[in-house]
Design a protein around this nucleic acid. Structure first.
Length: 177
DNA sequence: GCGACAG
DNA sequence: ATCTTGTCGC
């Protein structure tokens, strides 16, 4: 069983505009590099229930910072033809130097001589996150957006709100069983 | 063969 | 992701 959530926030106030949570049964296991095979189906189901069409999507996973340069965020962006950003808490691949300890600073994530993403410091002296292009956006613009969406915590508000919603639902789901 | 490895 | 205690800080 898997619970997937999508939360839409207003870009300026960062207040929740709409949210969708679905529960699905997935058979495909988690395999690094094949994340989409497991997470995309339920995510697509959740997206189809949205009444609002998002102008930008922040995904919990990588974009082109992927062995085939096509992670979950890239996949979702192409499917719905919507700008997307891959935003992971940990690294899938690539080498990098520690970014400056200042909010908004980021250093390039490199693989095979290519810049596949940015290691972004969203909060001063806090472990950075891994940002990469998903679809229809540049890396600098993606980093600017993620920084703007993370005014107080390490992770962007979009991800935090979605996580909280999912945890809440899955918690009361267990309690009744 | 060994180590690395989004969630 | 999950397991898992106390602890530090706003």
């Amino acid at each position: 069983m898997l619970v997937a959530g999508v939360v839409i926030l207003d870009a300026n106030s960062l207040q929740v505009v709409e949210s969708v949570v679905i529960q699905d049964t997935v058979e495909f296991p988690y395999i690094p590099g094949l994340f989409s095979f497991r997470e995309l189906p339920p995510l697509v189901r959740a997206f189809k229930e949205l009444k609002t069409t998002p102008q930008l999507v922040v995904c919990d996973g990588q974009g082109i910072a992927h062995p085939r340069r096509f992670g979950l965020a890239s996949h979702l962006g192409v499917l719905f033809d919507i700008p997307t950003i891959g935003c992971g808490k940990t690294r899938l691949l690539g080498e990098y130097k520690e970014p400056a300890h200042q909010r908004g600073a980021y250093s390039p994530l490199i693989d095979q001589g290519e810049i596949i993403g940015g290691v972004l410091r969203t909060q001063p002296n806090i472990k950075p996150i891994f940002v990469s292009i998903g679809h229809g956006i540049s890396l600098p613009t993606a980093c600017t957006w993620i920084t703007k969406l993370s005014p107080k915590y390490r992770l962007p508000e979009t991800t935090r709100q979605a996580d909280q919603l999912v945890n809440k639902v899955s918690a009361e789901l267990n309690r009744s069983r």
